[in-house]
Nucleic acid binder design. Structure first.
Lengths: 224, 224
DNA sequence: TCTAAATTGATACGATCGGATTAATTATGG
DNA sequence: CCATAATTAATCCGATCGTATCAATTTAGA
């Protein structure tokens, strides 16, 4: 008799798949390892999922579902926010999600390195629609003076998500090299502030506050 | 008789290894595929390298050698440059290298997703020394007013390199989703300008130029 | 040119992979 | 309580993996 409190086999397989695919990618993961981690016999995979491929797709769909919930959790209140506050709100939730579930970014990275049927599926069903909306939102925010409008929206978008996710993708390296755990709550909040400070345009007040500082930085040539 | 013009077997193996490991990572690459791509029998790998592991390390060392040359090619002239110009110079070469040899970033990403002997070797021999220097340079540039000093140097560093490399890591996805080839020379230069515009502090002149714009962006709350 | 070393090619082995099959077990409803 | 369906466990198969071995071939020095 099941207690109902413990996860059923299907859910255990899904969780284990998320963890394994997130660490080792599709090629580096074996269904036997997933079954081991889930504590079930590897034959059960064939029953609950058609195979490795479907298990991978289920893991991706599951993570995107979590992402959607995370980013839109304050959506009802967006109408009461300024454009800048909306960007800060969704970026904050996105960064927190990236810290809590780095597997999604990692799975995408693994698959985006080369062409494959999985990349095609991933792009058509998730990346293209998601990225299209995100770039459009970035472009709007540029018009609204939240982001620097002197940079193509596509470049800004990819710089934006990279800035957000990279430090969590590199977590094992940072832990090993500097003994810093970027998943600590303090580190996560520090990173949120860092990303927003660097990529959002300063407000008018902030510009005035720092104008003295920048006078020290005189006479240097511009970028272009 | 060799003509001397064609690559020898060892070099052909190395090039093929760079390409394969860069696309599929260590786990996703088979030595047979490397030998096929190199046009040699897969038994030769055992002669020129002790095995898959050493071939992977050789590929990493080769790429880091190229990176070093690329970033330091103008080092002799750095003494004639302002701090800002030095940052722009090295960042520009780094971005161009990331576009020309995305394999290095990709190999690092593949390995940095989980602990392994390879990650340990990679971290000790390359990542830690390289990153330590890079973070120190970022901290110095912050003091010199090139970067926003209101952000921890470590976060700024990881945001910096992420902004630089991500768009090239995602190249197959961007090509598939938006039919844009980020390896086009124009795209590369656009990306260099974008990264520098977003992450470098504006010079004093640039601040004055844009001060009218920012008056439109009034009354919105700050980040923190 | 002849011989020894260097290099390459062909083949084999044990391990592990994903997938398929079938038996054993558990849950469900009459 | 029993029969049926749902689920899990055990086993097998062909393919491919990394590696090792050894013969064939090419290169280089005396």
């Amino acid at each position: 008799m099941e207690t109902g409190l413990e996860l059923d086999t299907r859910s255990k397989l899904l969780k284990a798949a998320v963890a394994q695919f997130g660490k080792f990618g599709f090629a580096g993961t074996s269904v036997r390892k997933i079954a081991d981690e889930a504590g079930v016999n590897h034959g059960s995979i064939k029953y609950h999922y058609s195979g490795k491929d479907e298990l991978w797709r289920a893991a991706v769909a599951y993570l995107y579902g979590l992402l959607d919930k995370a980013v839109h959790q304050d959506e009802a209140e967006w109408k009461n926010m300024t454009p800048r506050q909306q960007i800060i709100n969704s970026a904050t939730h996105y960064i927190r999600f990236s810290a809590r579930h780095p597997e999604l970014s990692r799975i995408i990275f693994f698959e985006t390195m080369h062409e494959s049927d999985r990349l095609e599926w991933l792009t058509e069903n998730y990346i293209r629609p998601y990225t299209s909306r995100a770039i459009a939102r970035v472009a709007l925010a540029q018009e609204q003076g939240v982001y620097n409008s002197d940079v193509p929206a596509m470049n800004l978008h990819y710089i934006n998500i990279a800035a957000t996710k990279n430090i969590f993708l590199m977590a094992p390296e940072i832990k090993r090299a500097f003994d810093i755990d970027v998943f600590d709550d303090d580190q996560i909040e520090t990173h949120i502030e860092s990303v927003l400070k660097l990529l959002l345009l300063p407000t008018a007040e902030q510009t005035e506050e720092t104008s003295q500082k920048e006078e020290n930085n005189a006479g240097l040539p511009g970028v272009s």
